[in-house]
Design a protein around this nucleic acid. Structure first.
Lengths: 225, 225
DNA sequence: CTTTCTCCGTGGTTATGACAACATAATATT
DNA sequence: AATATTATGTTGTCATAACCACGGAGAAAG
């Protein structure tokens, strides 16, 4: 199998991975852009790990309004909460682009006694806890971000967080305008307006989904220092 | 010790509890209303369980604006995410009223090998995973709730969720107006206005922090059926 | 009983973002 | 190349919630 570097398998050996696979705990699948991997209202035993592409966790209400809760990048996982608790999903997991997904029988690993004494069972459970806790942090900071009442702070705090994550002032975001609006709880045209206003004020540059944050400290000429 | 019915101790025997206590993994403390149990910027090994009273998990920004992420009721826990990951807190945990708190050395239990072979270690870890997953669900639905763009749906969906949780159309909420506004990301006076509008339209009744949801199907007189 | 303080409602003003409708650009399809 | 389709920007109108300031009710403190 390819080098599957997900936190879920931290500390798990190749041999153990092969054992998991042979017991049917792992299954890889492909998904075209827009395809639904998990659907609202279902119950799932499976957790998904994005191998390539990316996945949006989103909620569509009765009127067709979409809210994007998170975008799952390669190496990250989704659905673990529902697999572990057995709750019915209140979100869809939809491929944001053509993707490959590794499905893991998390419920089986956690719940059934079948695997309890196997060497990898404890490791996976422990890793699941770390992943769950990490997602908790993500959701918490997401709540804080989206609690800004005006649009600009929401946009800025989102762009800043991507900048920090990538370690660069120039980066691509995984959303088009509509998706970004659905992620930030803004109207698309309002988002577009505000982005252009920020561009005109010299805060940012962008083209399509590529953004650059511009420093506000106008650097004095070197001779001045 | 009193009957400590927290999900963290599900399946843990009295004897095991006593063992945990004797090893210094448990400590109970009191906290006056407004007291800070965990503070933004700190790192903690501890998780808190509310024995009595209640705790707000909240963030105060540089300008003194407060956002309440959640209210922790008796039997529920807080801080487990930070104890498990070792991340620095981005929130305060503040007593919403005079409270008693049980502090548990979660980081020690998860990380140190010291307890690895003790009978209760695995149970606690497993319970922690369930608690973390449950909190994930809570945060997710919180995000969906606060994504409503207008104030009334936010208010209604909050009141409905409390109604569902308590199983009654009449209930007390754990917030005063300012706190409810900080929870729903609304201005206090705007919240007050909207609540009164909803009252005038016959949707709800309230006095202080007691609320009653009114059915909108005007029941026809019995004779008509 | 009086004073103080906190909590809550109210009114008025204003900024802002939702919404609808359209224009233009970019991309995909044939 | 021509056409359809999707993505993004633009404009204008309108409803709404933020904000500020105040007054009253009720609780707590003296």
């Amino acid at each position: 199998m390819e080098k599957m570097m997900s936190p879920l398998f931290r500390g798990v050996t190749e041999k153990e991975l092969a054992d998991m696979r042979s017991r049917g705990c792992l299954r890889e699948t492909g998904c075209r852009k827009g395809g639904i991997i998990f659907r609202t209202g279902e119950v799932t035993n499976l957790l998904g790990i994005v191998v390539s592409g990316s996945v949006n966790v989103e909620n569509i209400d009765l009127w067709g309004n979409r809210r994007i809760l998170s975008n799952i990048a390669p190496g990250e996982s989704f659905g673990e909460t529902y697999a572990v608790t057995g709750e019915t999903l209140m979100v869809d997991a939809a491929a944001a682009e053509d993707s490959r997904i590794l499905l893991v029988d998390a419920a089986g690993i956690i719940r059934r006694e079948t695997y309890a004494d196997l060497s990898w069972s404890g490791k996976i459970s422990r890793n699941l806890l770390m992943i769950s806790a990490g997602k908790n942090l993500m959701l918490s900071s997401r709540i804080l971000q989206s609690s800004f009442k005006r649009s600009r702070p929401r946009i800025m705090s989102y762009l800043s967080s991507v900048s920090v994550r990538t370690g660069s002032l120039a980066f691509d975001i995984p959303f088009d305008r509509q998706a970004l609006a659905d992620y930030l709880n803004l109207d698309r045209s309002a988002l577009s307006k505000e982005l252009c206003r920020m561009r005109d004020e010299g805060l940012i540059e962008f083209r399509k989904n590529h953004f650059r944050l511009l420093s506000q400290h106008e650097n004095p000429p070197l001779a001045d220092r």
